[in-house]
Design a protein around this nucleic acid. Structure first.
Length: 280
DNA sequence: GTTTAACCCTGCACGC
DNA sequence: TGCGTGCAGGGTTAAA
């Protein structure tokens, strides 16, 4: 799950979960459930910090969702690649790989489901949020209004790294993963292996604009739901942006712009998709 | 300092 | 049919 999917989830939570009071919380008995709350030594410690709390606000930092509680604590959630929240109730059976169930006083519940358990959730004290290691290094959000192309260009010139890995580096810019880094680079007409300090200011601005346009568009389409790793929103509905993808997953298929077959290469264990004609 | 590779995990596609 | 193998991916960490 990358920035657009996390943002859609955040907005759903804002609408549907904020304002509710937690009547009960359960960490399922499986071993993997403990993996998901790995920051807490024991189930009870996690549960006790949630029960009785009201959820005040749903925020996002990069790919993390933060649920602010009425005692100042914060439930921090990362979805990894297969994690998601699903709304449910007592009558709906828990899906496989449900690790945490949060039940609301007003009825209904919130399930954290994650087959591959790369996801994580933990409760941190609001005062200590700045000390949470995972959140400290998260760089600026490309949709943040203080994100300017001038500062972006300056930092790119300082680095001299390949564009794709730089875009996926959460310490450099937050929220992009494998799918959207490829899509943004295509939209900007730049190759994944271009070095960041070789861009003209025109190219920097193109990349900057593409970041915002692609991510905003993906949010508008409510995220990307691929066949194998099916992202669903809070209510179990798939996104629509997979139909809009220009390069990701389209190996050998004709480029939507110039008909040249889309190429793919392995870059440090991850596949990069690009059009050899449109991107340079 | 930078970059790569391995690791965690499950589901699925593939070949035999 | 059924098994083993390989791959996918986010982020952290160790190694190059």
């Amino acid at each position: 799950m990358e920035l657009p999917e996390v943002e859609v989830m955040r907005r759903d939570l804002e609408k549907d979960v904020v304002g509710r009071k937690i009547a009960a919380a359960e960490v399922r008995p499986s071993k993997n459930a403990m993996r998901v709350i790995r920051r807490h030594g024991r189930r009870k410690e996690f549960v006790d910090r949630l029960v009785g709390r009201k959820i005040l606000k749903a925020d996002r930092r990069g790919k993390y969702v933060l649920l602010f509680l009425d005692n100042g604590d914060v439930l921090v959630v990362h979805f990894g690649m297969s994690g998601q929240f699903v709304r449910g109730n007592k009558r709906v059976p828990l899906p496989p790989h449900t690790h945490v169930v949060i039940t609301f006083q007003q009825g209904g519940d919130l399930r954290f489901v994650d087959p591959r358990t790369f996801g994580e959730m933990f409760v941190a004290a609001g005062d200590d949020l700045g000390k949470v290691k995972e959140l400290q290094h998260i760089a600026i959000d490309p949709l943040d209004h203080v994100f300017t192309w001038q500062s972006f260009g300056g930092q790119m010139a300082q680095r001299g790294s390949k564009l794709k890995q730089l875009l996926m580096d959460q310490k450099f810019i937050s929220g992009l993963g494998n799918i959207y880094s490829d899509e943004v680079l295509f939209a900007a007409g730049l190759r994944h292996d271009r070095l960041s300090d070789t861009l003209s200011s025109q190219e920097v601005r193109r990349l900057y604009r593409s970041l915002q346009e692609v991510l905003q568009e993906a949010i508008r389409y409510r995220g990307t739901t691929l066949e194998d790793e099916a992202y669903l929103d809070l209510f179990g509905k798939p996104g629509e942006f997979q139909n809009e993808l220009k390069v990701y997953g389209r190996q050998s298929l004709p480029c939507r712009r110039c008909r040249t077959p889309i190429q793919t290469v392995k870059v440090s264990g991850r596949s990069a998709y690009f059009c050899p004609q449109c991107q340079s």
